[in-house]
């Protein structure tokens, strides 16, 4: 059997490896954080900067809220039959003071989650297409 290839579902949004990070930007003038990357204009109304540094965002955060989905969403979501319920969590990053959504990693159960629970970023398969596993960032309860 040939090994399936692995590719990100979207380029340049996260790093891979043992300790993956989301990739954001930080305004060179006012230091505001942005995710997804803001590279053309600063959205802080008091800043007109057009220069940004690419940065890795904190890879740990706390659950702000979460929900488990029991129905298959419409396109362009791609999934393999049979449809499996999945959890989406809103995670608050302390340093960046922002909330970022993401699916919870496979195998995480809704009953094990609570608001305020510490989670960390992982990169995991989202769907498979034409022999390639496409990955995305997900959240997983942090290992202490």
């Amino acid at each position: 059997m040939s090994e399936s290839k692995i590719a990100p579902s979207i380029e340049g949004w996260y790093t891979c490896g043992e300790s993956p990070h989301l990739i954001g930007t930080r305004c060179k003038r006012c230091s505001s954080y942005f995710f997804p990357k803001q590279e053309v204009f600063c959205r802080n109304p008091g800043c007109r900067s057009t220069e940004f540094d690419e940065i890795e965002l904190s890879r740990k955060g706390k659950i702000w809220s979460y929900t488990e989905h029991f129905y298959a969403p419409p396109e362009p979501y791609i999934f393999s039959e049979p449809f499996e319920p999945y959890i989406i969590a809103a995670v608050e990053l302390e340093e960046e003071k922002m909330i970022i959504l993401g699916q919870m990693a496979q195998g995480v159960l809704s009953q094990d989650l609570t608001t305020g629970l510490e989670v960390e970023l992982v990169v995991e398969k989202l769907y498979e297409q034409d022999g390639t596993d496409y990955t995305v960032w997900k959240w997983k309860p942090a290992e202490n």
Partner: peptide, 25 residues
């Protein structure tokens, strides 16, 4: 609006449910 469906299957009820859970907590 396209990416939220593609990258995580985030539907409109996702947001309603996140707010609802928050009210419970």
């Amino acid at each position: 609006d396209w990416l939220r469906f593609r990258l995580m299957g985030c539907t409109n009820p996702t947001y309603f449910a996140l707010y609802a859970r928050r009210r419970m907590d």
